[in-house]
């Protein structure tokens, strides 16, 4: 019984905090139709910036997290600008920035990692204020962060600018015909998405007590798995549903991984299992059509 509650609470925390990353991924991959790999670098960037500012600069953890958010936005904006100003493809733009960020992150931390064990963090601040600790503390902080971004994004995506962003990923020709600058919209969206991802990185680093340059490896596939699960299970339509489905999908994915690890899956197989999960999720709709005898067009590269 205890282990069930434990698995659920751990997954709930991770669902909320990694949910921010999933929403970031959703913004680029789904809303904008822009396969953005930047987040493999902006996730550890968030961790590196927050950890360095707290450990070396003694900055207030809240402020440090805010700076991490803007650092992520800047990284995302660079990807968007490479794509729109220099016409480098979306995939390559993200890849280039991701590779560059690896050195940036090493430079920020002056090394491969920074410990936060003896430092003040958002979690310790909230823990002292509310007199709670352990997993429930993690959940409360993650829930507050998730709620803040949920409400901001739910509002923003339904504003005039937000609507133009959503339309840009669907029909650029129409968006230009309606007088909106699609290039600008791409940069805004990649910036917002990576701001979310960096914030998730900053929070996770503070919760686990360290930031590591390698913590971003595989986050794109992990986020994709969560988004696909959310879409398949909840079939969201409205903005509210879409945002909630991202958190829900992340929670289910985390629960799956937690349970798999508890029943004896070796931790080194984690990413392989995730990769297989994504392949499965992407292949199911195709296989279903194939089995139904439907005609399918030749493979495309997009």
């Amino acid at each position: 019984m205890d282990s069930v509650v434990n698995a659920l609470t751990v997954s709930l925390y991770e669902g909320l905090v990694f949910g921010l990353l999933s929403i970031g991924l959703f913004m680029t991959f789904r809303v904008l139709d822009f396969p953005d790999l930047t987040m493999e670098g902006s996730f550890p960037l968030g961790g590196a910036v927050a950890a360095t500012l707290i450990a070396r600069g003694g900055l207030n953890p809240l402020l440090a997290t805010l700076v991490a958010l803007f650092a992520g936005a800047a990284a995302g904006a660079v990807t968007g600008l490479l794509n729109t100003k220099l016409r480098i493809t979306a995939l390559l733009s993200g890849l280039i920035v991701m590779v560059g960020l690896y050195s940036v992150n090493l430079n920020i931390m002056s090394g491969a990692n920074i410990s936060l064990l003896r430092e003040n963090t958002i979690f310790k601040m909230v823990g002292n204020a509310l007199n709670i600790s352990g997993i429930w503390l993690s959940i409360v902080v993650a829930a507050i962060a998730a709620a803040i971004f949920f409400f901001i994004l739910r509002w923003f995506l339904q504003t005039e600018i937000g609507l133009a962003l959503r339309a840009s990923g669907n029909n650029e020709q129409m968006v230009r015909g309606m007088g909106a600058d699609t290039n600008k919209n791409i940069v805004i969206t990649t910036a917002i998405a990576n701001a979310l991802v960096a914030t998730a990185g900053a929070l996770i680093a503070q919760n686990q007590g360290f930031s590591d340059v390698g913590m971003g490896i595989g986050v794109v596939v992990v986020g994709l798995a969560a988004v696909i699960i959310g879409e398949a299970l909840f079939r969201p339509r409205t903005i509210t549903q879409i945002l909630l489905a991202a958190f829900g999908g992340t929670f289910i994915y985390r629960l799956f991984i937690t349970v798999a690890l508890r029943v004896g899956m070796p931790p080194q197989d984690l990413r392989l299992v995730t990769a297989a999960l994504v392949v499965l999720a992407l292949a199911i709709p195709f296989a279903r059509k194939k089995l139904a005898g439907e005609w399918l067009p030749p493979a495309t590269r997009s």
Partner: peptide, 26 residues
């Protein structure tokens, strides 16, 4: 038209043609 958006969202894109888009509800 934008297939993924609703009829009213498409029309909201249209009423803002040539105007600056802001943070008002679309």
């Amino acid at each position: 038209t934008c297939a993924r958006l609703t009829i009213e969202e498409n029309l909201s894109m249209a009423v803002l043609r040539g105007r600056t888009r802001g943070l008002h509800k679309a």
